[in-house]
Design a protein around this nucleic acid. Structure first.
Ligand SMILES: [Zn+2]
Ligand SMILES: [Zn+2]
Ligand SMILES: [Zn+2]
Ligand SMILES: [Zn+2]
Lengths: 133, 133
DNA sequence: TTTGACCTTTGACCTAACTCCAAGGTTTAT
DNA sequence: ATAAACCTTGGAGTTAGGTCAAAGGTCAAA
């Protein structure tokens, strides 16, 4: 059984983060002390670690809420459901990667065309390109 | 000379966007009509196109403010300054791309380990992995 | 007993880049 | 002349994931 500061320290997050997760339906402490302090169980601690691991894998908090629902009653779901979520996330990331790669290449091309020298930018091809596409 | 709605339509943005750019020091209309309407000149229109092109290349509005400063007095800057900005942006994008690629690969690995079948997720390796790293 | 480290709640603030709304004045078309 | 379509300002709301501050209650050690 942990008080909020203890669990937060153990998982290297701030107490406010745990309150935020609670407000957003991700982690409710098992109970409260008679004075109203949040008391977290070992199961809660494990669930927090689940949340943090999923976050580190790139899932949003709303993805994680879904994953926790599935985890809470695994037998109601199929592997296909879970794998589908993960693959959708892969696709989402891939789309962003592609877009950023495209931007990076355009910028690199822009940079390559500029002499990069110490003289005045009056003739700078980068500015020229931005000025008149 | 354009009223705000005309310039906005010509560049496919909303009037509110132009007001936002003005408030943020990116584009001030050349003058105002006697009744207070914003009046944009052709130079303003060109500057807006500069802004939109730079945005499409991935520059933030604060980057663009800097680019506009340079553009406004090109002779005070060197090509090296401009090229440096662009290369910093390339590096910034590259860092994000690398991070997202790492995430994508981890997720793909997670997905590959799951059978993805229609049976119950009780044995799902994805959930197992998230539960106990 | 008193200090200091905890805990509680409510609610504001942060970044980025808009987007929308309300209440009112102006211009344009019919 | 009047209605639609425009313009003005100020200020609030959006998304995501927290982070902080204020005002007060609680607990442990010296
Ligand atoms: Zn040069
Ligand atoms: Zn140059
Ligand atoms: Zn399976
Ligand atoms: Zn599975």
């Amino acid at each position: 059984m942990y008080k909020i500061g203890e669990l937060a320290a153990a998982c290297k997050v701030k107490p406010d983060t745990l309150r935020f997760y609670e407000k957003n339906g991700l982690l409710h402490p098992a109970n409260r002390s008679d004075k109203g302090y949040r008391i977290y169980s070992d199961d809660d601690a494990q669930q927090l670690r689940f949340i943090l691991r999923a976050k580190a894998m790139g899932f949003s908090l709303s993805d994680i809420r879904e994953l926790l629902n599935i985890e809470a009653s695994r037998s109601d779901w199929a592997c296909a459901d879970v794998k589908g979520m993960v693959e959708a996330k892969v696709q989402e990331l891939q789309t962003k990667i592609d877009e950023m790669t495209r931007l990076r290449d355009s910028l690199q091309e822009l940079a390559d065309a500029c002499c990069g020298g110490p003289e005045s930018a009056i003739h700078c091809s980068i500015l020229d390109t931005l000025e008149t596409k």
